[in-house]
Design a protein around this nucleic acid. Structure first.
Ligand SMILES: [Mn+2]
Ligand SMILES: [Mn+2]
Ligand SMILES: [Zn+2]
Ligand SMILES: [Zn+2]
Lengths: 164, 164
DNA sequence: ATCCCTATTGATAATTATTCTCATTATCAA
DNA sequence: TTGATAATGAGAATAATTATCAATAGGGAT
């Protein structure tokens, strides 16, 4: 079963005399099979389950490559680590629940149609735009039991107690 | 010479039986005197120049405190470190030049007036929203000599060569 | 199928922003 | 002035990401 742009992957790889490795295929496939926003570690975990002897360094290297090839987009959703998802045709933006970490995507055509044009009218050239919204999802507003479940990716337990 | 809300600072500090220390005064003052988006290290440098024997740990601790008190806002402008600025009355957003690192602020009332209300209409509670735009400023589009000057804060030289 | 060039990888050390630890100091109310 | 304890400084610890480098593997040419 081949995935959508596995072929587009091939062509863009060869065009730059890069090499089509198993690791790259696996890593890209994990991204394509997922509708979530995975971080490097989550991708690493999933790739190893499937089969390969892949190193975390290669995951990072491949993500950087895919990003530069336009196959994958990097997202910063207010965490201190980076998430990745396959590049979409339509731009979209992200809401993250501060309690359960669920990520909800949304469109905001005003950004592409009004805000960015206004910025570029001032002589700036825009290459990227991220609208990052955070708050509390409907479930977590209702529940007292906030932060119980952790949607959208695997759990990472931070350290900090510096909240005063 | 007292600064704007140094007094508001006093009251909010006392209200929570926190203590008004020299370090906190100095750090907050650096933020208030600057119209830039400083990172912890830049604040650290400026505070030491002024006078005090302040540790970097205290800068971080104070920034976290000020953020929680609503006196200071944290910004992530696409770098791998965090910037801070005094809390503004009006929301605003940020464009960063990828070449010279200059930061340009702009308003986007559509966000507060249309986009966020739409999100909240779906049952979500929004507590924060950042629109982070990057690209190239007018100067850097013109110049071939991109990346020469480094506006808005001190220089940090990264390591990476992983760009393929 | 074999050779060869070199892009890529795995393992692990290095880097670096931020947080933690804990003994010492300073704030402030009484 | 004193006492309780909030806050600090110094440096160790943490953790995500990147660099190093010898070994491996892709793929074009033969
Ligand atoms: Mn998304
Ligand atoms: Mn700003
Ligand atoms: Zn939630
Ligand atoms: Zn510029």
């Amino acid at each position: 079963m081949d995935l959508p742009n596995q072929s587009g992957f091939q062509s863009v790889i060869k065009a730059r005399n890069l090499r089509m490795t198993n690791q790259r295929r696996q890593i890209l496939q994990v991204l394509q099979e997922s509708d979530e926003h995975l971080d490097a570690e989550a991708i690493y975990d999933r790739v190893r389950q499937k089969d390969a002897r892949v190193s975390l360094a290669t995951v990072y290297r491949s993500l950087t490559l895919f990003k530069n090839l336009g196959l994958v987009d990097e997202r910063n959703l207010g965490e201190d680590y980076r998430r990745f998802e396959t590049a979409q045709d339509e731009p979209h933006y992200h809401f993250t629940c501060l309690a359960c970490r669920k990520v909800i995507e949304f469109n905001a055509p005003e950004i592409e149609q009004k805000i960015i044009p206004q910025i570029e009218a001032q002589g700036l050239k825009v290459t990227e735009a991220h609208l990052i919204v955070s708050g509390y999802c409907a479930d977590c507003q209702r529940d007292q039991t906030r932060g119980k479940k952790h949607a959208d990716t695997h759990l990472r337990i931070p350290n900090q107690t510096n909240l005063r």
